[in-house]
Design a protein around this nucleic acid. Sequence first.
DNA 1: TGTACATCAGTGAACGCGCGTTCACTGATGTAC
DNA 2: TGTACATCAGTGAACGCGCGTTCACTGATGTAC
Lengths: 234, 234
Amino acid sequence: MSPNIKLEWVRPPLQARSQQTLERLLDAAESIIEQKGLDNATVAEVARCAGSSVGAFYSRFKDKEGLLRCVFERFNQQALATADAALEPTRWKGVRLHDAVEIMVRFLLRMLTDRRGVVTAMFSRTATNPEVTALGQLLHERIVAAMLTLIEHRGYRLAHPDPTVAVEVAVWLVLSGLQARVVHGASQEHTLSAERAAQEIARLCSSYLGIEETSSDHLVAIHTNPTQSTLSTQ
Amino acid sequence: MSPNIKLEWVRPPLQARSQQTLERLLDAAESIIEQKGLDNATVAEVARCAGSSVGAFYSRFKDKEGLLRCVFERFNQQALATADAALEPTRWKGVRLHDAVEIMVRFLLRMLTDRRGVVTAMFSRTATNPEVTALGQLLHERIVAAMLTLIEHRGYRLAHPDPTVAVEVAVWLVLSGLQARVVHGASQEHTLSAERAAQEIARLCSSYLGIEETSSDHLVAIHTNPTQSTLSTQ
DNA sequence: TGTACATCAGTGAACGCGCGTTCACTGATGTAC
DNA sequence: TGTACATCAGTGAACGCGCGTTCACTGATGTAC
């Protein structure tokens, strides 16, 4: 109505129908990527799977690249939100940092495995597409920041002389390691079980960061079974 | 001459000319991948760049996939040989394990960066092509084995209760981490310098494995400048 | 309430480009006698 | 040494498939009077 309305990203564009179509296209693309891989996610197939048509596709997305950008961005949004929620300091009250890391890694591994298709798609696109890399970078930074907040909030002391760098390095290696593990095919012969991997990574982080648990935390932790954290679904 | 000659993989196939062509094709492919990326390495372009022709290409390789397999396999062969040489125990006489790891990481990082194109190509193929994954697995296992041999040979004691698992985990995380770093673009803003990364990774390995240096090693190491190792070229 | 018109949304056959692969043909090398 | 023949090696235009993108057209929704 008012002439100075600021038009933004066309949220519900005039007719709700087209917005629904857009989301069905996104869902279809993600589902195909998840089940048949990125290579089989052709425009025609995505449109068909969404109960739409090729023409409708191109009235919503500039091109195929635009679709993928949306899919990846949406995935990253969810990942960011999840990371924020998971690293919320109050959630970890009374849990030793070592155990927290183990739980987080187990959780992360399950998440990555569940959405292996999209993770793999982003993984293989990251080489050519800088935007995808940027998304990963964003998530990385957010996790580092949240981790530092958590550590500070809980009053942990790190033996490592430069906690920021240490957390950065730890997050870097763990994220890329888990990603590689999932992409390379979860269940290979000589690979450690997810359980064991989580334990070892927790141990690695503890020793590298040089976590000095406070006695109070320690005492509470004895009564806390890590596998029953709210993050653990199974 | 003799009728029961066993024909093998057609090493120098009857005329030396064709063997040369084959190698020129491999070199051309690798060079194009390195400079313009995997996507621009079309059969026609590879043939042209090798001073050959498309037809000649197909009389040497079953298909394009066969070419890539050869390129990757050759690369992996070199990597294996380099790893073996680099981890030879006598090479590290008098160097503390901590310093050795730092040097190795720096070396590895330089190698990966130098051949970023091929590394990236393998990286993005690993998602779809299990054979590429298998190559990486092979390298991984070789490095783990050599590392364990080195540790045992030098008489180091590890505080970690299960040295094999510990080395496996460390190699896994470090390899995937470095690979990710190189593929994502070496020189990004918020990334640590190669120098610093190597230091931190060495620290991480030391603390995780729980390296207990023997006093004799320690003494010798004082007089050994890590940056002057034979592995270090610059 | 009805009619006319504008815009939104969707349809799917047809187009065209890139690139892997084929194939009919030429030239080079080696062997038999 | 020479001639005939077989095989190896190479050439590059032409083919064809897959898939992203376009476009002329139909149907749906909303608005004006």
